[in-house]
Deep mutational scan, measured.
Amino acid sequence: IDAAQIVDEALEQGITLFVVNNRLQYETSRDSIPTELLNKWKQHKQELIDFLNQLD
């Protein structure tokens, strides 16, 4: 699994991931984030931050 897949998966569930001051953040209108997704974010945090920083 790679960062792009995780970002896409989040988007499919209505969650936008982004980076502020090198910290992973998210925006969503959902009430809660699925635990499975949160765990993936934690496991791949640095990859996600690097990936999202490249997009900007």
Results as ranks from 00 to 15, higher is better:
Ile1Pro: 09
Ile1Gln: 13
Ile1His: 11
Asp2Met: 13
Asp2Phe: 12
Ala3Asn: 02
Ala3Trp: 07
Ala4Gly: 10
Gln5Leu: 11
Ile6Gly: 00
Val7Glu: 01
Val7Asn: 03
Val7His: 04
Val7Met: 05
Val7Lys: 02
Asp8Lys: 15
Asp8Ser: 15
Glu9Ile: 03
Glu9Met: 05
Glu9Leu: 04
Glu9Tyr: 06
Glu9Asn: 05
Ala10Gly: 03
Leu11Lys: 15
Leu11Ile: 08
Leu11Cys: 09
Gln13Ile: 07
Gln13His: 15
Gln13Gly: 06
Gln13Glu: 08
Gly14Tyr: 03
Gly14Pro: 00
Gly14Ile: 02
Ile15Ala: 03
Ile15Pro: 00
Thr16Cys: 13
Leu17Asp: 01
Leu17Gly: 00
Leu17His: 01
Leu17Trp: 02
Phe18Leu: 14
Phe18Ser: 12
Val19Ile: 07
Val19Arg: 01
Val20Cys: 13
Val20Asp: 09
Asn21Asp: 14
Asn21Thr: 04
Asn22Thr: 04
Asn22Ile: 03
Asn22Cys: 10
Arg23Asp: 15
Arg23Pro: 01
Leu24Met: 03
Gln25Gly: 10
Gln25Asn: 10
Tyr26Ser: 02
Tyr26Thr: 03
Glu27Tyr: 13
Glu27Leu: 13
Glu27Gly: 07
Glu27Ile: 13
Ser29Gln: 11
Ser29Gly: 09
Ser29Cys: 07
Ser29Asp: 14
Ser29Leu: 11
Arg30Gln: 06
Asp31Arg: 01
Asp31Phe: 05
Ser32Tyr: 13
Ile33Val: 13
Ile33Gln: 01
Ile33Asn: 01
Pro34Ile: 03
Pro34Glu: 04
Pro34Trp: 02
Pro34Gln: 04
Pro34Phe: 02
Thr35Met: 13
Thr35Ile: 14
Glu36Ala: 11
Glu36Val: 10
Leu37Val: 05
Leu37Met: 09
Leu37Phe: 07
Leu38Phe: 08
Asn39Gln: 12
Lys40His: 06
Lys40Phe: 09
Trp41Met: 10
Lys42Thr: 12
Lys42Ile: 15
Gln43Trp: 07
Gln43Cys: 05
Gln43Ile: 12
His44Phe: 13
His44Thr: 04
His44Asn: 08
His44Gln: 04
Lys45Gly: 10
Gln46Trp: 12
Gln46Ala: 10
Gln46Arg: 09
Glu47Ala: 13
Glu47Trp: 05
Leu48Met: 04
Leu48Ala: 01
Leu48Lys: 00
Ile49Lys: 03
Ile49Trp: 03
Asp50Arg: 10
Asp50Glu: 11
Phe51Asp: 00
Leu52Gly: 00
Leu52Ser: 00
Leu52Met: 03
Leu52Glu: 00
Asn53Ile: 14
Asn53Phe: 07
Gln54Val: 09
Gln54Asp: 10
Gln54Ile: 09
Gln54Lys: 14
Gln54Tyr: 11
Leu55Ile: 13
Leu55Asp: 07
Leu55Gln: 13
Leu55Thr: 12
Leu55Ala: 11
Leu55Pro: 09
Asp56Tyr: 10
Asp56Ala: 14
